[in-house]
Design a protein around this nucleic acid. Structure first.
Lengths: 206, 206
DNA sequence: GTTTTTATATGATAGTTATCATATTTCATG
DNA sequence: CATGAAATATGATAACTATCATATAAAAAC
């Protein structure tokens, strides 16, 4: 058993991180394996010792890199103060820093950057994405629940429970971020972020 | 002046339509010019007589195909009954038929399918996208305005005017559609559409 | 019917891609 | 220190890409 197992795992992680960065910035089809490996400080030779194919790499990125981000987000801040956590998450996610990827500690979310490409990928990738999406929705739903119990008025829009609100929030956050990135006008882009924040807070009842 | 000008215009439109279909389904980087021309019933030879480059084709698709869709959507139904129009648009956009692209008369929206790739494109493409997005937002804002004037209560989320609501709606609609397509679980995908519809109606005050 | 203009087709080029075969390096184990 | 298994590097291949040069064909104008 030459090479320590820890070394291989560390290399794998380095490839994964590099791929995560590049896939989000340039798209899955916009980056080649050579570039991913170069970004990881390696050459293409070793790639297939870690992943079965390029698509398998995407699956792993969605599954592991994104999952790690979610954990971080989940643990950051107020388990005891859900409304604060919700507002901070909304404001952080829909911030100009996140849009411009100049953010630290709050890694760029692939929910927005990779959704379209995931929808064209094979079942393994889509299943990985589905699982991550479900976890994210669950984390948010758990913070909305107490919020919802408080103001017990009928909203008029039919019943709209915590889980549904969480799902709508994920859609609005990712859609707002993607839209703010696609638009070419600084003022409109800022308006998109602001409007999405307001909409998100309305849905989250914050 | 050989060949009638109408013929060239008609060919251009055929290429544009083919590209619109393929770009939305397989992504900009997922389709080659040969395939686009074949879909239009031509070969690659004539392409550069119509467009300066592949990216120029994307710009035209965003600008013209999408714009035509918006016009159709704008004209469909109640200028005199905004709430009905809003609800119908939300329900149609976030329907399973639209998600599965089995829809007729309500062409598949590139807002969702191409946002990420547009954000990586050059300024011409992004400007075209920005213009279309602004038109779409304006069309929606115009239908929210009267809706808003009616129920004049303070919402608690600060002022949230018609334009801001329209922007948030576009973000939620496109994000919800993209998310429902990426997810691999039939039940969750349906739940995404349903939750996004509820959220959209909350924002639209319908 | 000839000419001329231009849309389209065919063929070619240079670059890139994912993937694999083979060579080389690394380092735990004996 | 030698060995051997496994991680990484180098080199190659076949397919694909956008783009262009040249050839063909169509059809309007005279």
């Amino acid at each position: 058993m030459p090479w320590t197992e820890a070394h291989k795992a560390e290399t794998r992680t380095r490839i994964l991180d590099a791929a995560g960065r590049l896939f989000r910035r340039d798209g899955f089809k916009g980056v080649g394996i050579d570039k991913v490996m170069a970004e990881a400080g390696l050459t293409r030779g070793g790639f297939y010792a870690h992943f079965a194919s390029k698509e398998d790499l995407l699956r792993a990125v969605v599954s592991e890199v994104v999952f790690a981000d979610l954990i971080r987000m989940h643990e950051r801040g107020g388990k005891n103060d859900p409304p604060r956590w919700l507002a901070a998450t909304i404001d952080g996610y829909l911030s100009e820093a996140h849009r411009d990827r100049t953010i630290t500690g709050f890694s760029d979310c692939p929910m927005a950057a990779l959704a379209a490409e995931v929808s064209r990928a094979g079942p393994e990738v889509r299943s990985a994405y589905t699982e991550v999406a479900r976890d994210l929705m669950g984390a948010i739903a758990g913070r909305i629940e107490p919020q919802l119990a408080e103001g017990a008025e009928g909203s008029g829009a039919g019943d709209f429970d915590a889980w549904e609100r969480a799902i709508a929030l994920v859609a609005l956050l990712s859609g707002g971020l993607a839209l703010s990135r696609a638009v070419n006008d600084k003022a409109l882009s800022a308006a998109v972020l602001e409007a999405a924040r307001k909409g998100a807070k309305l849905i989250a009842r914050t």
